Simulated scan of single mutants.
Amino acid sequence: MDDDEFLKKIRTLYFRFPGNILTNIEDFDVVPMNADLTVISQFWNINTFIHMHDCFEINYIFKGQCEFVFLDEKRILKEGDFCIISPFTNHSTRLLDPDSQIFPILVKEQTFSKTFFPLLSNDDILSHFFRKILSNTDEPNYLLFQTSASPDVRFLMKELFLENFQYDKYVNQSSVHWLSLLFVSILRNYETYSQFSSYNNGIAYAPILRYIQSHYTTITLSELSKIFHYSVPYLSKIIKETTDQSFSSVVRKLKMRAAVQLLETTNDSIEKIAEDVGYNSSDHFYRVFTDYYGMSPTKYRKIHQET
């Protein structure tokens, strides 16, 4: 069914909430005792308030817009946004019009770290980003993906929501799998659209990350410091604290990842690939690639194009 028909149908469904969620409006959790996660539907005009959970809250903006308050920050989330909020963080979400629809997903902290953490173990800049959030759950953080109302993400979100109403012994296992697919889809397709807030860092790193990802072939740390108006030592420190890597390591990783893709998918010469990923000398590229992957670009291409 299309989105409008889906929303019309689900508004005939209802949830049973445990009574204890109303005992303290600042701190509550609605995940059933024997479940790893639950998905609810946020209704228009509901009384919103600043609160926290002992679990992760993942808000998917299915339709319209909502006002998101995170500590002392306020921003508007739009259709397709997928926002992950760390446990024990004061926050609230409020729909901005009657046609808006949010699906909050609540995931127990131990479930997130045990079940979903392997998805985030890839050797790329976003996974480092994600791991830092999940490994520092005492710090108030959120991660925001802008999926531009992706049909794949919307389909998976529908299936995850409807799974709540199966009421059989497979619900929990199936819900975990649907959420796993959601994470895979987002990590696969939307890594350049992530945003991050960390109040301990005191600096919004997301624009810096996006700029590095878009200009890695030519950007230098000195140029980056001028663009974002931070000193070179301070910016270098922030990049190291946020990614667990130096600026040069971040850039080299992006260059190597781009080079691998070109080696696997094109017949371009090594000289052209070196130039495309930001090396002035093919000899320099050859040495860096060999040191990074333990084999020359030529050997890498031969192995991977044969397979």
Rank of each mutant, 00 (worst) to 15 (best):
N164P: 08
N122S: 12
T115I: 14
E159H: 12
D138N: 13
V171Q: 15
N172S: 10
L143F: 04
Q166K: 12
L144W: 00
F145P: 05
H128C: 08
Y167M: 03
F155I: 02
L119R: 03
S150D: 15
T137L: 01
T137N: 10
F145I: 01
N172G: 08
L119W: 04
E163N: 15
F130H: 02
A149M: 10
L162N: 10
L160D: 06
N122H: 10
R154H: 14
H128D: 14
Y142A: 01
L143S: 00
V153S: 07
P140E: 12
L144F: 00
M157L: 06
L144C: 01
L126K: 05
K114F: 10
D168F: 03
K169A: 14
S174W: 03
D124I: 00
L144T: 00
K114T: 12
L119P: 12
T137Y: 01
D168L: 04
S148K: 14
H177S: 12
V153G: 09
L119F: 09
T137F: 01
Y142L: 02
N136W: 09
K169V: 09
F117A: 08
L162P: 07
S135L: 13
L120Q: 08
E159P: 07
K114W: 09
F116L: 03
L162K: 04
Y167R: 04
I133T: 07
P140T: 05
F129E: 06
K158H: 14
L120I: 08
I125H: 04
K132M: 13
I125Y: 02
T115H: 13
F117H: 05
Y167S: 03
R131T: 00
N136S: 13
S127L: 03
H128Q: 06
L162M: 12
L120K: 06
Y167N: 07
K132C: 04
P140H: 12
E163R: 12
F155L: 14
L144Y: 00
L134W: 14
E139R: 13
Q166F: 05
D138G: 14
E139F: 07
S121A: 06
Q173E: 15
S127H: 11
S150E: 12
K132P: 06
H177G: 08
L156A: 05
K114D: 14
V153D: 11
L156Q: 10
L160T: 00
L126R: 04
Y142S: 01
V153W: 05
R131Y: 00
K132F: 10
S148V: 00
V153F: 12
Q146Y: 09
S148H: 12
Y142C: 03
N172W: 05
K132W: 11
Y167Q: 02
V171N: 07
K114A: 13
N164W: 04
